[in-house]
Structure formats: structure tokens, C-alpha cells
Write a protein that binds this DNA or RNA. Structure first.
Length: 574
RNA sequence: GCUGGAGUAGCUCAGUCGGCAGAGCACGUCCUUGGUAAGGACGGGGUCACGGGUUCAAUUCCCGUCUCCAGCUCCA
């Protein structure tokens, strides 16, 4: 059976339950969504937890009746009259937007009717497993100036087993939440009261992870023909007026005045890279020119949109701008896509979702420019044989874009990489190159990030691995636990050997029981625990316990170093 | 920014229908020297988010502010 139909029917049953409990409530819309369904209601009082329980109970009664879903077609004017009688103002509004003269309504038994395109299951009894999950505000039609309705979210599956599995998955996602794991494992924290919301503090372990990621990126960019640049964090306002940000991005920018000069804390890296491009006359022979920067930017995001590491006010992008000839556009886009895929794979993400966003209504640039840009992006995806969804009109105002979202272990999507084609900034800044025939021409500019922001990516990593990072990324790779204080000397010797082999080591010689120190190392999610006692000293070995319990292996130190190095090498491209 | 819920020790949370603030973990000292997920004893630690108001008395009730959470809107 079609899951969407099932869920849609379930949302009708929920609406019916709500109407029967509170007849004065007005209905919005109630579609199936990716993981379930919702229905919007207009009600003065907020729905409480108890309300949800009562609604569920009423829904079960409706399902038990096994009332049929009956489709009826009536004229639009009849429908408007009908919903007027019912006092369903929002439905009337919907009806007025419908072009056709005939509309369909669905009756559930004799008790409930709703404007609906359908389809539905035959009868309410077909719903076997559902659950109401949460209630939240939502603007009517998603428009901020419209009244806010109350949206009840729920989900529904063909079988109870599938529903249970889904709920378990939700629970699992909650336990992996990077906002919990991050501070718990001492990667980062956000000091909301003291420092401010959306501003991330990397603690030592987070800083090591960040350094590993940064080193990886620098190496890879240099290998692929990018040049590293570094640009200032503050620049004068005039530059942002030229770029258009001052006009179009003002509410997100931190600005300040010193000695009558206005400065902007950079929200983007593009203008800086453009200045470097413009610093001299460029020949077509220099293109494509690829400038890369781990650029830290600050954007004043509204308080309500901030979310852990996913949405912050200060973050570092692995940002590059590629200045190229029109005929280079295709190959550049393709090589960026390859770069993205290689990077994702190295970090352990095997699945991605690709979206192509096209020209929005409000945009700059000629129709032809847009066509060329969109075509190039699309051709690149086709030539790579990659499946993608199209988001009509979702592009940036200066150009179309490809978004590559990575999927984590729980199949959740994370917006990271984006490739944007831009004709506008080259124009605004008057960028040029001298072509083969000696004439001045305008380069095309590609904006692109691979990981997006290092903050967001770190959040994705933590959740993907549930905090148990692979060996090459783990800030502490190996913990040494001497059983007794007497074995400290041997431990220090092993520590030095491992450090010389390039590992990040922690020695836990605290006066705590062995069990307790093992437990804490496991909770810290350190990949390897080496236990050192009398036996190991005598044989010059280590007792190796791999993260997650399991059996302990006695190995010579050299042997352990060999296998661990191999593990790092396999996962890390260094 | 909008709607709703919430803010008590470093963390996880009890509690006070208005009358001296509680536990476990973590931290400190001491005992314990342990072979693969929590050894024991004692101890320190709080402007009950912040600012007003009501009251003999407010952590508790009321108002405002900040922040978080679930969404909406927006986005790397």
C-alpha cells in the first residue's frame, strides 16, 4: 500500500478526531510528509500533551468503526457554500485558489468531510499503526504575516513493527544529538549567557579534530590546483556596497564605525578573493584561477534559527572561488563534484542527495547567462551519471546552484557542499582577463564549499559516528592504562614509542580501579585501550582492547603500531 | 522574528500548594594497588537564568528581559 495515502488518510482521521472533540476548531491543511503527516488547526487554546493523548484515543475509536472514505465531486460554488456552512474559512480560501470548476470532497462515514484531492484508503480500519508526535506553530500558507496555526505532527506506518522501528530511530537520533555529545565528549561548547548564542568554543579535543580536518583540506586543495589565500576579518563598508551585500544582506551583517570609517565583519569571503583577483591584469592563460580559504565569517542570524553547530553566527567555511573562462565552466564543475565525492567518502559518508536549484523570480543577470550557467551545472551532473532533484526557482539571486547533501548513518540529510555559478559579482566588480586575441573579457565565477562550514560538518561527523570517530579522526586515539602505579615507567616508555609513531595518546594512571578507567575510556569513545600490567612488561607487549568491548588481544608493541598505522592509512588519504 | 514548552550544583534531575535548598554522577582529601564498563569513607560546591512587582516573607505567585527546546520562516 502507498505509504503517503495511508498517512494522508491518517491525517484526515486526526482532523476528524479534533473536530469531534472541539467542534469550533477550524481546519487548515493536512498533507503526508516525508516521515509522517501533519494537520494545521486554528484554535485559541494551545494543544497540550494530554490533548494529544485524547486525540489519539478518539482516533482509535474512529478507526475501530472502520468507516469508509467516500469521494464526491461537486462544483466549486457548491463546495464554497458547503464550507461556509461549516465555518471552515481556510478551506474557502483554498477553494478560491483552485482553478477547476469541479472539486472533490471526501467523507469519512457520515461524521466528517474535508476538501481533498485524495486518494485515500478505503476505510478508516486500514490504519494499523500511528502515533502523534508533537505540536508546533506554523504560519498559514507558510507566510510570516499570516496568522499562526497549530500544527500537530504524527506518523503512520503499515505495520506496528515499522512504526516501532521508526520511533526507535527517533530515539537513536536524539541520543546522537551533537548538541549533547559535543559538550559531553568535550569537543565544543556554546556559552549562551556569557559569550552569546551561535558562537562556538572549541575545547582541546574539538580543536584537534578541527586541525585534522583543516590539514586534510589544505593538502587536498593544494593537490587539486587550488591556491591558498587568507583575507582579513573586517573590511570597509564600501567594498560591501560594491558587492551588493550592503544592500541585500544588511540585516545579517555586523557593522561598526571607527574614526568615522564604517567597517563590516565579513559575512562572506567572495569580495576578499575578488580583490586578490583584481590585483593585477589577468591573462586567459592564468585561468582557471582557484582561490581557497578557510574563511571565518560572521552572520547575524535571527535568534530563533540558531541550532547547535548547524546554524551559528560565527563559522568557518572551506570556501573557494574559481575564476574561469566560459568554456572551462563544465570541466570545473565536474572536477568540483569529484572533489566533493572524494571528500565525503574519506570522511565516511557514502550516500548523498543532489539538488539543482534554478533561477528564482527575483534575480539579476541576463536570461542567457542563467541559461548557460544552469545548462553547465545540469550537463555536469548528467555526464557524471548522478541522479538529482530540481528545485525550481530556489537558486541564489546571482546564479543557479548544485547542493550536495550528505546522508548520515540514520539517513538524515545534512546540507554541506554547494556549487554556485555567478555572473553578477564579476560584473559588479568589473573583473576582466585578456583573451588570446588581446581583447578584454569577463571571467565567470564559481563559488563553492565542500564541507560547508567546519562547525556544521563537525556536527554531522559527531552524529554520523555517534561520537565514536574513526581512528584517523579521533582526538585521542589510544589510552594507556597501567594496572598499578608500579607499571608507570613501562607505560611512559610505551607512550613515547606510540607518540614517536605519530599517535595521539592519553595515559590514565589515576588512582582509580582498572574497571573504572576502562569504563571511562569507553564512554569517551577512545578507539583503543591498552592495558599494561606485569604480564605485558615481562613480554614487552600490550593488551589491546578495541572500542566497544569485545576480546582483548595481546600484541607486541611493534605489531600494534603496525596494525594501527594501517588502519589510519586505510581511512585517511594522507 | 512568530507560536508553544522550559530554565534549580560542572552534568542528569528531584523538591518547595509562599517559611533555612536535595540526590546521583563529577570535583577535593584520605583509605584501597585493583587484569577488562562504576571499590570505600569524609568533604567543598547554589543570587533556584536576569530585572521589576505583590507579600511580614518569593526559588515558588504576577509582569518584563535573556537563553534553550519543538516547529514555522530563513540558511553554510
Amino acid at each position: 500500500m502507498d505509504l503517503d495515502t495511508l498517512r494522508h488518510s491518517c491525517s484526515h482521521i486526526m482532523a476528524q478526531a479534533v473536530k469531534s472533540l472541539w467542534p469550533q476548531v477550524k481546519l487548515g491543511i493536512g498533507p503526508a510528509i516525508e516521515d509522517g503527516f501533519y494537520y494545521d488547526f486554528d484554535r485559541q487554546q494551545p494543544f497540550s500533551e494530554t490533548d494529544l493523548v485524547n486525540i489519539e484515543e478518539r482516533m482509535r475509536q474512529i478507526i475501530a468503526k472502520d468507516a469508509p472514505f467516500i469521494r464526491q465531486e461537486i462544483s466549486k460554488s457548491e463546495a464554497i457554500e458547503l464550507f461556509k456552512q461549516l465555518g471552515e474559512d481556510y478551506k474557502i480560501e483554498l477553494l478560491k485558489e483552485i482553478q477547476d470548476d469541479v472539486v472533490s470532497i471526501y467523507k469519512t462515514g457520515e461524521d466528517f468531510l474535508d476538501l481533498c484531492r485524495g486518494p485515500h484508503v478505503e476505510s478508516t480500519g486500514k490504519i494499523k499503526a500511528f502515533k502523534l508526535l508533537s505540536v508546533a506553530g506554523a504560519y498559514w500558507h507558510g507566510i510570516e504575516t499570516n496568522p499562526m496555526l497549530q500544527r500537530i505532527y504524527g506518523t503512520c506506518f503499515a505495520t506496528q513493527e515499522e512504526l516501532d522501528a521508526y520511533l526507535k530511530n527517533l530515539q537513536e537520533a536524539k541520543s546522537r544529538d551533537h548538541r549533547k555529545l559535543g559538550p559531553q565528549l568535550e569537543y565544543f561548547d556554546i556559552y549562551y549567557d556569557e559569550a552569546g548564542a551561535g558562537l562556538v568554543f572549541y575545547h582541546p579535543k574539538g580543536a584537534i579534530l578541527r586541525r585534522i580536518i583543516e590539514d586534510y583540506e589544505k593538502d587536498m586543495h593544494l593537490k587539486r590546483g587550488y591556491q591558498m589565500v587568507i583575507t582579513p576579518h573586517i573590511m570597509q563598508a564600501g567594498l560591501w556596497q560594491t558587492s551588493g551585500h550592503y544592500e541585500y544582506y544588511r540585516e545579517n551583517m555586523y557593522t561598526f564605525k571607527i574614526e568615522d570609517k564604517e567597517f563590516v565583519l565579513k559575512p562572506m569571503n567572495c569580495p576578499g578573493h575578488i580583490l586578490i583577483y583584481k590585483s593585477k591584469i589577468r591573462s586567459y592563460k592564468e585561468l582557471p584561477l582557484r582561490l581557497f580559504e578557510l574563511g571565518t565569517v560572521y552572520r547575524h542570524e535571527k535568534a530563533g534559527v540558531l541550532h547547535g553547530l548547524l546554524r551559528v553566527r560565527g563559522f568557518t567555511q572551506d570556501d573557494a572561488h574559481i575564476f574561469c573562462l566560459p568554456q572551462q565552466l563544465g570541466s570545473e564543475i565536474k572536477s568540483i563534484i569529484e572533489f566533493v565525492f572524494a571528500t565525503m567518502q574519506d570522511f565516511g559518508f557514502d550516500e548523498v542527495g543532489i539538488e539543482l536549484s534554478t533561477r528564482p523570480e527575483k534575480c539579476i543577470g541576463s536570461q542567457t547567462d542563467w541559461q548557460i550557467a544552469t545548462q553547465n551545472l545540469e550537463t555536469a551532473l548528467k555526464e557524471k551519471g548522478l541522479p538529482y532533484d530540481i528545485n525550481l526557482g530556489e537558486g541564489a539571486f546571482y546564479g543557479p546552484k548544485i547542493d550536495i547533501k550528505l546522508k548520515d548513518a540514520l539517513k538524515r540529510k545534512w546540507q554541506c557542499a554547494t556549487i554556485q555559478c555567478d555572473f553578477a559579482l564579476p560584473k559588479r566588480f568589473g573583473l576582466k582577463y585578456i583573451d588570446a586575441d588581446g581583447s578584454e573579457k569577463q571571467p565567470i565565477m564559481l563559488h563553492r564549499v565542500l564541507l560547508g562550514s567546519l562547525e556544521r560538518f563537525m556536527g554531522a561527523l559527531l552524529e554520523h559516528y555517534a561520537g565514536a570517530l574513526p581512528l584517523w579522526l579521533a582526538p585521542i586515539q589510544i589510552v594507556l592504562i597501567p594496572i598499578k602505579e608500579d607499571f608507570l615507567e613501562y607505560s611512559l616508555q610505551v607512550k613515547t614509542e606510540l607518540e614517536n609513531a605519530g599517535f595521539r595518546i592519553k595515559l590514565d594512571s589515576r588512582n582509580e580501579t582498572l574497571d573504572k578507567r576502562i569504563r571511562q575510556a569507553e564512554l569517551e569513545k577512545i578507539p583503543y585501550i591498552l592495558i599494561l600490567g606485569e604480564r605485558e612488561i615481562k613480554q614487552h607487549t600490550v593488551a589491546v582492547r578495541k572500542r566497544g568491548g569485545g576480546t582483548t588481544q595481546i600484541m607486541g608493541i611493534e605489531e600494534f603500531i603496525g596494525t594501527a598505522q594501517k588502519e589510519v592509512r586505510e581511512k585517511s588519504p594522507h
